[in-house]
């Protein structure tokens, strides 16, 4: 490339007005052997940048195999639900039975009370009957 063009590019380069492509041209120019003597002072800059780009990351990255949480969460949810339904049912049945028992007990005790009251009344009737018998006997 013409030397004057390189000089112009260099000037633009330090004002940061060169494009990426123009900077590529500069790097190319300074990577070859026949750099103009008065520009040689810039060579280390451009060769360094090219060299720096060759550095590589060689370390291994230990990636833990990622369990997909959603899958396990849904499995857990299903398990909890099944458990709940199974034992929940038992529990509900037990409660229902207990309730029925209590109701029956209440009903029975009510019946017993009324029966008692009934027999009391019947006792009055007895009194009446006795009185009647007395009267009949007297006659």
């Amino acid at each position: 490339m013409a030397l004057d063009k390189i000089e112009i590019l260099l000037e633009k380069y330090f004002e940061a007005t060169t494009t990426v492509a123009e900077e590529e041209q500069l790097r190319d120019y300074f990577s070859q052997d026949s750099v103009a003597p008065h520009l040689e002072q810039y060579t280390p800059m451009f060769t360094y940048f090219s060299k720096a780009k060759d550095e590589r990351f060689t370390k291994q990255v230990p990636l833990k195999p990622r369990v997909s949480y959603h899958k396990w969460i849904s499995i857990a949810a299903v398990a909890v639900m099944a458990f709940g339904i199974y034992f929940g049912n038992d529990y509900r049945e037990q409660r229902e039975a207990e309730f029925a028992y209590q109701e029956t007990k209440k009903a029975l005790s009510l019946l017993a009370q009324n029966l008692e009251r009934g027999t009391e009344k019947v006792a009055y009737l007895n009194e009446f009957e006795q009185a009647k018998q007395k009267i009949y006997n007297n006659n």
Binding site: V20, E23, E24, T43, P44, M45, T47, Y48, F49, K51
Partner: peptide, 27 residues
């Protein structure tokens, strides 16, 4: 003199370091 450039870049303020790295090395 190539590693001079590296040393010189070490002395730059962080922001200039970053800009120079991203532009002249990573393009």
């Amino acid at each position: 003199s190539i590693s001079w450039v590296e040393k010189i870049m070490e002395e730059l303020p962080e922001q200039q370091k970053l800009v120079l790295q991203l532009r002249d090395v990573e393009e």
